[in-house]
């Protein structure tokens, strides 16, 4: 339903999930403060490299990347015109500033670099693996529980919503901007909430009956192998390289 398979199997998926999650966090942390265009470009190169290594299903991935870039597009429409600075060109009554264009360019490179890294390293793991990996990386137990439980029930609830909405449609409901439509949608939503609430109670009683003690076990075992450590070291080197370009890089406009 939501979890289209985005990747073919590749060696990146063999890397320990905790290592992948930690590397993704580290790289994103290093990338977000970048101001230098060269550093951003090298980050984008790294992102593209990781994405290629992850062997994605390109159509789906490109679709995802396009979605991420809608916000970037919005910034491109607004920032160059509204940011004050030296005039680069003139479009009728609007003047396009060099600073605005530079800012928009910087942001779009960064957004895409981080998106590529995140897609390649994190989105190739299943939600339950991601939850357990976060737990092993010292996230609070209750939060991990909340995440895993929610990730499990999102599918059930989405299915329930589909059934409710289909039932309404079969009765001739087509939403418009009026009181009736809003009332109907809200009733469906209310019904979904009430049913989900009841379901939560039942599930809780059921898992207590089966001896639930506060945390879930993972089916997949977590092992860090030497190759995982090598991967982590290479990623740290890349991060250091990008930061070096940022701070000791060539002066440019």
């Amino acid at each position: 339903m939501f979890d289209e398979i985005l990747f073919h199997s590749s060696f990146l998926q063999q890397v320990d999930t905790r290592v992948r999650m930690a590397c993704a966090i580290l790289l994103t942390l290093c990338l977000s403060p970048l101001h230098d265009l060269y550093a951003c470009c090298s980050a984008l190169t790294l992102g593209a490299l990781l994405l290629v290594l992850a062997r994605p299903r390109w159509r789906r991935i490109l679709h995802r990347i396009a979605t991420i870039n809608t916000f970037v597009l919005f910034l491109w429409c607004v920032t160059p015109i509204t940011m004050p600075g030296t005039e680069l060109a003139r479009l009728g009554m609007f003047s396009i500033s060099a600073e605005g264009v530079r800012l928009a360019l910087l942001v779009s490179i960064k957004v895409n670099a981080i998106a590529a890294i995140f897609l390649a390293l994190v989105c190739s793991m299943s939600t339950s693996d991601a939850g357990h990996a976060l737990g092993r990386l010292r996230c609070p137990q209750k939060l991990v529980f909340l995440f895993l439980f929610m990730a499990r029930f999102v599918y059930v609830i989405a299915q329930e919503w589909r059934i409710l909405f289909a039932a309404a449609k079969l009765r001739g409901f087509s939403p418009r901007t009026n009181r009736h439509s809003y009332g109907t949608l809200a009733s469906l939503l209310g019904l979904l909430l009430v049913r989900s609430h009841a379901r939560a109670k039942h599930v809780y009683k059921n898992i207590l009956l089966r001896g639930f003690s506060g945390h879930f076990r993972s089916i997949n075992a977590f092992h860090t192998r030497p190759s995982d450590i090598c991967f982590a070291l290479v990623m740290i080197l890349f991060a250091a390289g990008i930061l070096a370009v940022e701070f000791f890089g060539v002066e440019h406009a």
């Binding site: 209750k142 901007t177 809003y182 949608l185």
Partner: peptide, 24 residues
Amino acid sequence: YDRLMTAGILAAVFFVGSLIHVPI
């Protein structure tokens, strides 16, 4: 833990709610 379950399911409804489109 009792309410955690409810919070988890309501979080799931929050997630699904972001997929519901309302005409304006």
